[in-house]
């Protein structure tokens, strides 16, 4: 049993089902990557794991506990962090305030975690009084990840962290994500930028039309000719 598992997920946004029985699992200390063509339901699957859409069937378990019925806020309290693809910072608030909001559900002293996040992303420390909306794309992404980390999550889910960020910055960002995973967090990434993400992945899923098509280690998937042909552009 993995730490976070979503099994037989079926559901969508009220219209036709987008997820048609896919299953995703993530392990602590590992990076799990979900790739697939446009419209395969990658982001939807992640949203389903976080409780942002109503499932018609299937279950989500976290550390052995069934959390299928919990609202997103309750899942945040259980130690799940989510970084959306867009609009993932509070633009009008300072970097520091963004991070404080990430720790909103915590009642203990957050200064230690704050230092950790500033240690991970030193650039943010200098800009901590600046509104997040004024930062560059890469730094904004750092704020977004930092905000999610402030809750000391056991699971961190990232929806296309490389979107709108230059390749060099993406590499840098992925290295930090590797650091985060190594600290014992289960990291789950949905990526359009499949090759770069799979290079990093301990485990990878290829989704097609809401179902699992291929599953394996990142290396295996990168080596699989069919996956390369269809999803990695040769």
């Amino acid at each position: 049993m993995s730490f976070l598992t979503g099994a037989d997920l079926v559901g969508g946004y009220g219209g036709p089902d987008i997820l048609r029985g896919c299953a995703i699992a993530a392990e602590r200390g590992e990076i799990t990557v979900v790739v697939g063509p446009n419209g395969a339901g990658k982001s939807t699957a992640m949203r389903a794991l976080f409780g942002m859409l109503t499932l018609r069937s299937g279950s989500v378990r976290l550390g052995g506990e069934d959390i299928t019925a919990l609202a997103p806020q309750a899942r945040a309290r259980k130690g799940m962090g989510f970084v959306p693809q867009t609009d993932n910072v509070f633009r009008s608030m300072t970097v520091q305030e963004n991070l404080e909001m990430g720790a909103f559900v915590r009642d203990d002293d957050i200064s230690g975690t704050l230092d950790e996040v500033y240690g991970l992303f030193p650039a943010l420390k200098d800009k901590r009084r600046q509104p997040a909306g004024e930062l560059s794309g890469g730094q904004r992404q750092q704020v977004a990840i930092g905000r999610a980390l402030m809750n000391r999550p056991r699971v961190l889910m990232l929806d296309e962290p490389s979107a709108g960020v230059s390749p060099i910055v993406t590499r840098e960002l992925f290295e930090r994500i590797l650091d985060i995973a190594q600290s014992g967090v289960a990291v789950l990434i949905v990526e359009q930028n499949a090759r770069q993400a799979l290079e990093l992945a301990d485990k990878g899923y290829v989704l097609v039309q809401g179902r699992n098509r291929f599953t394996g280690t990142g290396e295996m998937l990168l080596a699989n000719p069919e996956v390369r042909q269809s999803f990695l552009g040769g």
Binding site: Q73, A76, F82, V89, F104
Partner: peptide, 22 residues
């Protein structure tokens, strides 16, 4: 904290919900 959560909610409702703001 409550005041900041109000500003956060006004700024970005979805993200505020993700952060566990009621």
């Amino acid at each position: 904290r409550t005041g900041k959560s109000m500003r956060a909610f006004s700024d970005n409702e979805d993200l505020a919900l993700l952060s566990g703001i009621n």
